[in-house]
């Protein structure tokens, strides 16, 4: 009897030991893992800001991630993926104004406005608003989306960017990778990947709700690019240029994603 008991005790002890050993291993692994995760988080959270250039204002690793994510989603981009459109009645009568950067009235006279298009060879095309109005007009009623999270159904009309490029013989420029647009005072500027700029719903808009665009909405000519957040929809276009490198972009310098595509 005594012998039996001791063997049971031995067994009990062996199990006890095994429990302790497994507990030790798994809890050590758990705490090491938790420590590593916490360390990794600290590293990321305290990682240095990127060097200010075309993009700025965010942590270096996060910018790298944004750029990699852009590459992934650009592969899904297609001209066949068009923005949903609505009947005209759905369009907002009071259109939200969210920004006036680059819209200063000093030194700006709408009557003298001309669009400057800087060609690859450096030549500058000067185009007046009447000339653009004379070209085929395209209308769109769609849900304008702001990076802040709000959206509004709006009605715009103008010249499709792809038609604009064809009409002014800018095929050579269309083969470049980026389009840059700036306000006349250079205070607001955006960079766009060419495929998004040439999307069939991208407009150089001069009308809103069947009326010439009001000053606050970007008269006389503004960009409406439904495949991007509002931050890319530059008002009062002054110059358009082309590049194989990313043109400067106002909000990409403030920590936002350069691509900002929808």
């Amino acid at each position: 009897m005594a012998k039996k008991l001791s063997s049971a005790q031995l067994q009990e002890l062996a199990i006890e030991k095994k429990i302790k050993r497994r507990n030790f291993i798994s809890f050590s692994a758990f705490f090491i893992g938790a420590g590593a995760a916490f360390g990794g988080w600290k590293w990321l959270y305290n990682s240095p800001q990127e060097t200010a250039g075309i993009t700025a204002g965010t942590r270096q690793p996060l910018r790298r991630a944004l750029n990699k994510t852009e590459l992934f989603f650009r592969r899904i981009f297609s001209n066949d993926h068009v923005v949903k459109t609505y009947p005209k009645e759905r369009a907002a009568k009071v259109v939200r104004v969210n920004s006036d950067i680059g819209m200063s009235t000093d030194n700006f006279n709408a009557a003298n406005w001309q669009l400057s298009v800087v060609k690859k060879n450096g030549h500058v095309l000067k185009i007046g608003i009447e000339e653009i109005r004379a070209l085929p007009k395209t209308e769109i009623v769609y849900d304008f989306k702001c990076v802040e999270g709000w959206d509004q159904i709006q009605h715009w009309a103008g010249l499709r960017f792809v038609d604009f490029m064809a009409h002014y013989g800018l095929q050579e420029q269309a083969e470049m990778e980026y389009v840059g647009m700036e306000t006349p005072d250079g205070a607001y500027y955006v960079g766009l990947d060419m495929e998004s700029a040439l999307h069939p719903q991208t407009l150089l808009a001069y009308e809103m709700n069947d009326q010439p665009i009001a000053e606050v909405h970007g008269a006389p000519l503004r960009l409406i690019i439904p495949v991007k957040y509002g931050i890319k929809n530059l008002k009062r276009i002054g110059t358009i240029n082309f590049s194989n490198q990313r043109p400067r972009d106002y909000w990409a310098e403030q920590g936002y994603d350069y691509y900002s595509g929808l």
Partner: peptide, 14 residues
């Protein structure tokens, strides 16, 4: 902190 939030969100979503 919108821009910061988006940058973190679109990394950790993966």
């Amino acid at each position: 902190r919108l821009a910061e939030g988006m940058a973190f969100h679109f990394l950790f979503m993966w």
